[in-house]
Design a protein around this nucleic acid. Structure first.
Length: 284
DNA sequence: CACTTGACCTGTCCGC
DNA sequence: TGCGGACAGGTCAAGT
């Protein structure tokens, strides 16, 4: 899916436009994409939009919330009422093509705006829950620290990673209980910035390497947000626009291309059946 | 405990 | 052009 920077990008694009808006209608076009009580969210007003790890939260009045996980192919596209008319200001073609055949859920607000949840592969989900129950949900409760918060530091990263000392560092970075929000793209990028080979076992890393990794994770996630996320196939922000981060990526999806730092050929290997990209010269 | 495989789904791309 | 296989921002569960 969308990893932390992509979900954050969607959150930033969505919150200004839907806070204060009241839900009017909800259409569920694929039953497995939505769980919970539709009646509970109908006529409720959005009061807060937030992100935890790769999960987007929307708090509504009357103590109800929506939790959204986009998994591999989810999109959230907001189309204002005006955009549908001549004279509106759609910023992408995709906004004018809603809904499409991968639209799974449609939220309509009283001001005429519609929020489309599209998901080609149907792995993603939206759950209606009680706001007060969120912290106790297992997929929230066991999440590791948010990497971009002030309280996160290299020692915490080290301690959490060392729970899996015999695991390859690339695999361990994808473990959402170690730290939350890093996925397959940014794991490769963070290891490049830290100059660490992805196959290194966690237990072999030195303190200097944990420090570099901490900085690398933060840097690459911040860059991801700065450039509006990564679009490999179908990620778009809430306005239907693609992200630019992959133009700036050092290794991800660049197999056999030149390393931007040393010129060597970038290699691709598979770890746990996921692609891992790295520079065999810069990374040790 | 750590790794592998399968599952959940659809679409695209590449080689023959 | 068609067909089969591999692969794709994620995460579970089960088996070894």
């Amino acid at each position: 899916m969308p990893e932390l920077p992509e979900v954050e990008t969607i959150k930033l694009g969505l919150e200004r436009k839907i806070i204060g808006q009241k839900l009017a209608q909800i259409q569920v076009l694929n039953n497995n994409s939505f769980s919970g009580n539709i009646a509970a969210i109908k006529n409720q007003e959005v009061i807060h939009v937030w992100r935890r790890a790769k999960i987007l939260g929307v708090d509504l009045t009357e103590g109800v919330s929506l939790l959204i996980h986009l998994k591999m192919s989810g999109q959230l596209i907001l189309v204002s009422g005006q955009d549908k008319f001549f004279g509106g200001h759609p910023t992408s073609d995709i906004m004018l093509q809603m809904p499409n055949k991968s639209t799974r859920v449609i939220f309509e607000f009283k001001n005429g705006a519609k929020l489309y949840f599209n998901d080609i592969r149907k792995f993603g989900w939206i759950k209606q829950v009680k706001t007060q129950d969120i912290q106790d949900l297992s997929f929230i409760k066991f999440l590791g620290p948010e990497p971009l918060t002030d309280s996160f530091n290299w020692q915490i990263l080290k301690t959490n990673l060392l729970r899996r000392p015999k695991t390859a560092i690339k695999i361990a970075l994808l473990d959402q209980t170690v730290l939350s929000g890093v996925g397959n793209i940014y794991a490769s990028e963070a290891l490049f910035l830290a100059k660490i080979l992805p196959k290194r076992l966690v237990g072999t890393l030195t303190d200097a390497e944990f420090k570099r990794l901490f900085k690398g994770i933060r840097k690459t996630l911040e860059q991801g947000i700065k450039y509006g996320g990564s679009t490999r196939a179908n990620f778009v922000n809430a306005a239907g626009e693609k992200g630019d981060f992959l133009s700036y990526a050092f290794v991800y999806n660049r197999a056999s291309e030149d390393c931007k730092r040393c010129g060597s050929a970038i290699l691709k290997i598979n770890q746990a059946r996921r692609g891992t990209y790295f520079c065999p010269v810069c990374q040790k």
